[in-house]
């Protein structure tokens, strides 16, 4: 083998290694554990270990669970994994005024801590819009929260 051919082979090998590593990140499912937020079921599965630590919780607002306190300074609602009635739920108490998009059934991400009285206290409430953009006259239900949720609902 001539030196040039060997050099080319080494170069191709290096490109393959880089491509394989990128593919590994893409397809290796390692992202599943690298969470930006926890779902209610994941949070509850931690049991007592989850108390106190500053974490993020993401899910959908359970319809009918949104309640203001008397002087409108704090808001409590339940966050569920999915739209299904059987999904795991966590009660959230927010001291921040929610964005206007906040409504029953929309996705939210809240930052705060899970108290031992089973209430998630937060002062940072973010609304998670789906990738659906529809005109209002379209009618129908609000866009389901994220593709996965829609798929899960369809499978049932």
């Amino acid at each position: 083998m001539t030196p040039e051919a060997r050099n080319r082979l080494v170069a191709i090998g290096a490109i393959l290694v880089a491509g394989a590593a990128l593919g590994w990140i893409a397809l290796g499912n390692m992202g599943e554990n690298l969470v930006y937020y926890w779902k209610p079921s994941e949070l509850l599965a931690q049991g007592e270990k989850a108390y106190g630590a500053t974490v993020r919780l993401g899910g959908v607002v359970v319809p009918g669970s949104v309640q203001w306190n008397g002087d409108h300074t704090s808001l409590t609602f339940q966050v569920a994994d999915t739209h299904l009635p059987t999904a795991a739920k966590v009660t959230v108490s927010a001291t921040e005024t929610p964005p206007q998009m906040f409504r029953e059934g929309i996705g939210v991400v809240v930052e705060g801590s899970f108290q031992s009285n089973q209430v998630f206290k937060t002062n940072r409430l973010m609304v998670n819009h789906s990738n659906e953009y529809k005109a209002p006259h379209d009618g129908g239900m609000p866009g389901d929260w994220k593709d996965t949720v829609t798929q899960a609902a369809n499978e049932q």
Binding site: V35, Y36, N131
Partner: peptide, 13 residues
């Protein structure tokens, strides 16, 4: 990763 940003839109969405 699960992100606050929505995924890329599709022609259906």
């Amino acid at each position: 990763w699960n992100s606050l940003h929505q995924v890329q839109s599709t022609s259906q969405s």
